[in-house]
Design a binder for these strands. Structure first.
Lengths: 225, 225
DNA sequence: TGTACATCAGTGAACGCGCGTTCACTGATGTAC
DNA sequence: TGTACATCAGTGAACGCGCGTTCACTGATGTAC
C-alpha cells in the first residue's frame, strides 16, 4: 500500500511492511497447496527469517489465517462495489457475474477460502459476516433493478417465494426488494458458484467444454426465465 | 458385505474384513475433519492396532485415499442408477435431484471428496472417470426424456447451445441427445452443486432460509425455463 | 551533539507432537505329507 | 492324526521430517535529557 498514515512512525511503517510481506508469501503458499497446508515456518524460511520471528507480527497461525480470510472477503466486496456501473438491471447483473468470475480466476484458492469447504478445525471470525452482507447488498441492488415488476409467473417456484416473503432477515437493508428479487439474488449466488467452483476444481477438464461459455449461459439464464 | 465369494479362503475373507474396517474408520475420520487430515496412525490406534500393521492392507496412504474416492464415486453412481424410476422426464429429473441431495447430506465430506476442492497434492485416479461418465449417463437419460422437442426458444443461451453441438464428446454414449438436453444436464449439475455445496459448507446458516426449499426451487427451475 | 536508557526485531536452542514409512522379528494360522 | 514347513498378521523400535510455539538472549534502532 503506497498510502501511509502521516502520523505513522518509521518503526510502525516497517511493521506493516513485514506483515504485508508475510501475508503475500502466505497467499503464494495457499495458491500452491490450499489453506490447510499453510505453515508459519515455511513462510519464515521463504523470507529469510527464523520461524519464531513471525510471532512479532502475528500472535499465532490462526490469527494469520483470520486476516487472510478477512482480506479475501474485503477484496471481493470491493471488486463487487467497483462494478457498480449503473444501467439497466440485467446488464448490471451480468457485470457482477463477470467481476465474480474474474476475481475467482485471479486466485482460485482464495475463492475457495471464502466459498469452499471450511478449513478443518477453524472457525470463521465474526466480522466477515459484516462484509458478507455488504456483498449481498451490492448484489441485491442489482437484483432489484433487474426485476421491475412482479412479472408473469410460471408458478413453479411459488413455494419458495412464499418462503422468502416470510424469511427475509438476511436482506434487512432492502425492504424494497420483492420476493422475486430475493430469489434472483440467491439464484445468482448458487448458480454461479456452482459453475465456478466446478470449473476451478477442474471438473470440466477433459470434457472439451469452454467453461466461460457455460458460465455466461448460466448468468444469462438468470434474467431470462 | 454379507455376500462373499464362495472360492474365498478364510484368510482372504479376514483380509477383506479388516480392509473394510479400516475404510470405515477412515470415513469416520473424514466426516470429522475432512480428507486432508486423514491419518493412518490414528486409524490404527482406533482399531487397537499398531501403525505399521495397516501396511499389510494398504500400500500407503495414497492407496487408501484412492479407494475411498473410488468407493464414493461408486456409491453415488449406484444411488443415481437406483433412482431410475422411469416416468415423465421432469419428474425423473426431480427424483435424481432428491437422490443427489440425500446422498450428499448423508455424508457431506464424502460429497466434497468427490465434488469439492481437490485434496492438495493428490491426483485423482484414472478409473473414477469411468464412473463419472456412468453418472453422467444416468443424468443424460433423464434429460433426454425431459426435453421432448427443440422447444420454443428464448434465444439467450444460443451461443452456448451452438458450442454444445460442436463439443459433445463428453456425451459420447448419447448421440440422440439434443443440445438442449446436454445443456439441461450441465445446468442440473452446476445449479444443484451450487445450492448443495453452499448449504453443506454452512453458508446459509444464520440467514434463516430453508435450504431444502431453495434446493427444490433450483431443481424445478431446470424444467420450467 | 553526545550520552544513558528503553524499545523492539530477530536468533538459536529446545519442547512435544504426530506424521508416513522401513525393518527385523514373534507368533499364530493354514498346508502338505 | 500327527509332524514339518510355509505363509502371513501384527509388534516395537527406529528414522527423518515438519509442525506450532516458548524462552532467554543479542544487537540494532529510536527516545529523552
Amino acid at each position: 500500500m503506497p498510502t501511509t498514515d502521516s502520523t505513522t512512525t518509521p518503526r510502525e511503517r516497517y511493521r506493516q511492511q513485514v506483515r504485508a510481506e508475510v501475508k503475500e508469501k502466505a497467499w503464494q503458499q495457499i495458491a500452491g497447496s490450499g489453506a490447510s497446508a499453510l505453515s508459519l515456518n515455511a513462510i519464515a524460511k521463504q523470507m529469510g527469517l527464523s520461524g519464531p520471528a513471525l510471532y512479532r507480527y502475528f500472535a499465532n497461525r490462526d490469527e494469520l489465517i483470520t486476516e487472510l480470510i478477512r482480506d479475501a472477503y474485503r477484496s471481493l466486496a470491493d471488486a463487487f462495489a467497483g462494478a457498480a456501473d449503473p444501467g439497466p438491471g440485467p446488464a448490471r447483473l451480468l457485470g457482477l457475474a463477470r467481476v465474480l468470475r474474474a476475481w475467482a480466476l485471479a486466485d482460485p484458492h482464495r475463492y475457495f477460502l471464502v466459498y469452499g469447504t471450511p478449513v478443518p478445525g477453524y472457525e470463521a471470525p465474526q466480522d466477515t459476516t459484516a462484509i458478507t452482507s455488504e456483498i449481498m447488498s451490492t448484489l441485491l441492488d442489482a437484483c432489484v433493478a433487474a426485476t421491475p415488476r412482479p412479472a408473469a409467473h410460471d408458478g413453479r417456484a411459488r413455494a419458495f417465494e412464499e418462503h422468502l416473503t416470510d424469511h427475509r432477515d438476511w436482506a434487512a437493508g432492502h425492504p424494497d426488494a420483492s420476493p422475486e428479487a430475493l430469489g434472483l439474488a440467491l439464484s445468482f449466488w448458487t448458480r454461479l458458484h456452482g459453475a465456478l467452483s466446478l470449473e476451478l476444481a477442474g471438473h470440466f477438464t477433459g470434457m472439451g467444454l469452454d467453461p466461460a461459455l457455460l458460465y455466461t449461459a448460466e448468468a444469462t439464464s438468470l434474467t431470462a426465465g
